[in-house]
């Protein structure tokens, strides 16, 4: 299938031009693969070189990442050092200088490692029309192409309580069998407002409410870790793919979650 391509100078112009037959092109690591194989999924591609998309700024306790910020740019910014270990595990160096934050939100299973981290960091998408959409909601409805995301804001870290773990068969650049992110803020040795998210354990990356409940109000010690581990896959039906079966993901997720939490405890 041949495609037409339109360039727009601004996000607003691109957003106005979006329709059911148009697919956004960002870094292109997934879209161009489809185009090369004659499966563009739309008659038209649209992209913008609006410089606002690559901005990174801090505002009111939150960090705002433009949707066009690449994984390489995330790795290079000192104020994003807590996200650098996530960005550095996405593809090889060439993929990282192309792959964007916005594209990761719409990358199909088993991709979406960065989206998983953003989800655990209270990510909120800023849509092109200025509307704010919590990432959990956006990701759950992403198949319906919810419109153009211009940026994602996330909670700024206070301490080193953010953890990320990617499980893959090929090191250093394999695709995820699963990824896990946990943000465990706390006071007086108790966790308050735990956020735990998984990638590649459901079609979109998801928050894992049963695990968060198991940790809430507890000290991060053996008893809470055991409760969290027992709830690791509650309500989840992980997909089968070429990397792993759903059964394998379900069986091994508790082990990886325990390691993630113990690493934090240590």
């Amino acid at each position: 299938m041949t495609v037409s391509v339109d360039h727009f100078a601004t996000v607003a112009e691109l957003a106005r031009a979006l329709g059911p037959d148009t697919r956004v092109l960002a870094g292109g690591t997934l879209v161009m693969r489809d185009v090369n194989y004659g499966q563009a999924g739309a008659a038209r591609l649209a992209y913008t070189t609006d410089p606002a998309l690559t901005e990174i700024r801090a505002e009111a306790g939150r960090i705002v990442l433009g949707a066009g910020v690449t994984m390489a740019a995330v790795s290079a910014r000192p104020e994003l050092s807590f996200l650098a270990p996530v960005a550095r595990q996405i593809g090889g160096p060439a993929v990282r200088s192309m792959a964007t934050v916005g594209g990761n939100l719409f990358a199909p299973h088993p991709y979406g490692d960065f989206a998983t981290a953003l989800l655990a960091r209270d990510g909120v998408a800023e849509m092109a029309d200025g509307a704010a959409r919590p990432l959990a909601d956006l990701l759950a409805r992403r198949a319906a192409r919810p419109g153009f995301v211009r940026a994602v804001s996330l909670a700024r870290p206070q301490t080193g309580e953010f953890r990320f773990r990617k499980v893959s068969r090929v090191k250093p650049k394999g695709v995820s069998v699963m990824s896990m992110a946990a943000w465990l803020p706390g006071a007086a040795g108790r966790i308050t407002g735990a956020r735990v998210a998984y990638g590649a354990m459901a079609e979109p990356p998801v928050r894992v409410a049963p695990v968060e409940r198991a940790l809430e109000g507890a000290a991060l010690a053996a008893a809470a870790i055991a409760r969290a581990t027992a709830a690791a896959t509650e309500g989840l039906n992980p997909p089968d793919d070429a990397l792993a079966s759903g059964w394998y993901r379900r069986e091994t997720a508790p082990v990886h979650l325990r390691r993630l939490l113990e690493e934090r405890a240590g």
Binding site: V5, G27, G28, M32, R33, A72, A94, M98
Partner: peptide
């Protein structure tokens, strides 16, 4: 100066 994959780069960009 940055490494890119030419097969995944839309030429006009």
């Amino acid at each position: 100066g940055a490494l890119h994959l030419a097969c995944l780069t839309l030429a006009e960009t």
